[in-house]
Structure formats: C-alpha cells, structure tokens
Design a protein around this nucleic acid. Structure first.
Lengths: 193, 193
DNA sequence: ACATTATATGGAGCAAAGTTCCGTATTTCA
DNA sequence: TGAAATACGGAACTTTGCTCCATATAATGT
C-alpha cells in the first residue's frame, strides 16, 4: 500500500542525495543478501550501491539495522501483494496465490527465518513487525474466502504464518518439500468448506 | 554408557598431554558457550583452558568443530542419564525427569537448537547424531512406561524430541513457557493411560 | 638413564570484516 | 551566489578466525 518514508515524525527534511543513497543501499543489500547470504560483507554492499562504507553506517548504524530494514521492506511488499491479488482473483485463488508468494519470500530470503527466531537483541523488533504487518493481510484473505464459503472458518492467520516459517526453518533448500507441505495446508483449509 | 574415546579405528595412540588439553578445551568451551554464547571468541576459550590458540586449532580445525564436539558431548551425557534414571525411579517418573533434563539441555545451550536447523554445512552432522543418540534413550523410557501401563502407546520418540527443540526455538529465555508446554506434553502422555 | 624421534604447543602474525573518524564535497536556502 | 548544514568517502582502528613454525614435551628403543 504505502511505500515511501513512513516516519510521520519527520523532524528534519532529508537531503535528496541522502535519500537516493539510502534507496540504492537497500536495493544493493537485497541483491547481495540473496546472492551471498546475510553474512555478506558490508563493503560488498557499499560497492554495489556505489557508495563508501561511511555512508552505509550513517544510514544504518550497524550491520543488523541494514538487514532488518531490507527484511521489513520485503515484508511490506508481501503484505501489499495481498490487496492486488484480491482484486484480480477469486477469494480462494487470491489466498492460495498469496500463500505461495509468502512462502517464496521466506524460502528465498535465507536468514529471515533464523532472524525471526534469533535471540540477538538486534533483531528483536523483527518478529513483531513481521507478524503485525502480515497478519492483517492474510486475515483479510482468509475472511474473504470464509465468507465465500470456500474454506473452513477455524483457522488462525498467525498459525499459518508461523507454520510456513517453521517448515522453512527445518527444510533448507528443499523447495519441493516445502511446497508439498504448504499445498497440504491450503488443501486442509478447504476440508469441510 | 560409554564416555571415552569412541574411535575404534584408533590408528595412532594419542599423546597424554594432547588428550588432557583436548578435555580441558571441551570443558572450557562448554563453560564459555553457556556464559557468552557460541559466538564467543576462540581466544577466550583457549585462555580459559590454559592453552594457546594453536592447540585449539590442532584439535578442532575450525571453530564449528569445537562447537559440534561440545554439543555431541552434552548429547551423550543426556542420553546416558536415561539409564541411571531408569534404575532409581518408577517408569513414569524416570520418563518425566528425563524430559525435564532434556529440556534444560536444549534451553540452556543457546545455539544448539539453531545449530540443529542451520544450513551451514559445518553443522550438517549434528542433527543425525542428535536424534540417533537420543531417540533410543527416550524410546526405552517410553516403552517402559507403556509396559507399566502409565502412559499411552501412540507417541513417537522423535516427535517429542523435536517438539521440545521447536518450543525452545521460538521462546528464548521464556523458561516458564517452555516448562509449561513440556509439562502439558507429558501430561498428555498419561491421557488414556 | 639417555638419546632419538614423532608429536604437540604457544603465540606472533596474517587476513577479513565491522565500525569510527574526519577532511572534503554536495545540497539547501536566503 | 555565498554561507551553513548536511552527507560523503575511505583510510585506519579493532576484533576475530586461522596459519605457521621454532620450541618444548612425550613416547620409545637401547
């Protein structure tokens, strides 16, 4: 839905070049994380974004802040997809397609699932952001499908979100396994439609 | 059960001081891991064991080998406890006490649960060791309690082992929560004794 | 007991990666 | 256009995994 600076408490106007660099950094980081994993060196990301390391640390005081920012951005995008899917598909299809989309988010971004369960305080705000952003999106799809009589009504959004995270946690690189299990979950929703 | 050098393929006899240092290292590492976490610097462990870093790397070519060795040792100890408990308690009590012991193993050793689910190839041999060592121990206790008519008979050892790992994964530092859930699991076993 | 040899040790030093600092460059605004 | 505010780059510092090798220690045969 929204995409730009969410901070309504904008005390100071951000300089144009700073904003540009921040975006470039987020894009470069996503790219590098997918390729090299979240443990990729900061210098690598800085180089890919065409900035110096100093710039990275101005925007993201530490490594983990950059990781969190990238993940939050992806979570936002994933949540937003729910609304566009709902406009272009039947209730159930929208739900099924979203679950697929969500699953690939978790499966593709190595390090997201671990970060969600990390005891490192640097990642402590991730879980709440994650669930509070995605829960309403999925809930909306579930409600729609329930209203349409396409799925059962006793399923919690959180349970589904967690289930996928957990499945991906213990099944690295086994995309087929994960897809099979997620399909099974979705089919389970239709039981006693 | 066993405790000493398990390698039957002992090609060369190990020098006495080497063995001593290796043990000191394992002990120091466990200590440091519990205090500082598994990310503690190697130098710290070497210092605590009273050896140089070179010695650490002779015995454990890389950091992760030391971590794995420490965890395997703990797993061995935990499996062994099953037998002594069985001798001194009723079947059900032995089972309950062991589950408690096992739970604290997982909950206390930060980094064990994550390592079990890590996609880092350095930890790839941990999961199989873990389950293959603990499954028989728990199975024995379960069978005993089943024979005594104290618990139901349709529960898999693996399921219980995994359940505790998963519970601890998503509940850092919430010992109370974990204990409550594990108690619930154990009570569940008695349902329809 | 001692010499010989195989093995193990310690810790300086190297390399990689996170983070800081500050002189310089760019943007903003009047 | 000029001054003030802000941001930038990247050298340098720190931490940490790991290697190397001159030295020390244990095992073994005499």
């Amino acid at each position: 839905m929204n995409s730009e600076e969410p901070t309504l408490t904008t005390s100071k106007p951000i300089r144009a070049d700073a904003q540009r660099n921040k975006n470039a950094l987020l894009e470069a980081a996503l790219d590098v994380f997918v390729t090299l994993g979240v443990d990729a060196p900061v210098r690598e990301i800085a180089a890919k974004a065409g900035v110096g390391v100093g710039t990275v640390y101005r925007h993201f005081p530490e490594r983990s802040d950059l990781i969190v920012a990238v993940f939050c951005r992806e979570v936002d995008a994933c949540a937003d997809v729910a609304f566009s899917l709902e406009e272009e598909h039947s209730q159930f299809d929208a739900l099924a397609l979203w679950m697929q989309h969500y699953t690939s988010l978790i499966a593709t971004k190595r390090g997201l699932a671990p970060a969600l369960h990390s005891d490192d305080s640097a990642y402590s705000r991730l879980p709440s952001y994650f669930y509070e952003r995605l829960r309403p999106a999925l809930q909306k799809l579930l409600d729609g499908a329930i209203q349409a009589g396409e799925i059962r009504s006793d399923v919690e959004a959180d349970d589904l979100l967690r289930a996928v995270v957990n499945l991906c946690m213990s099944a690295h690189d086994e995309a087929n396994y994960v897809n099979r299990m997620v399909s099974l979950l979705i089919d389970g929703l239709r039981y006693k439609a």
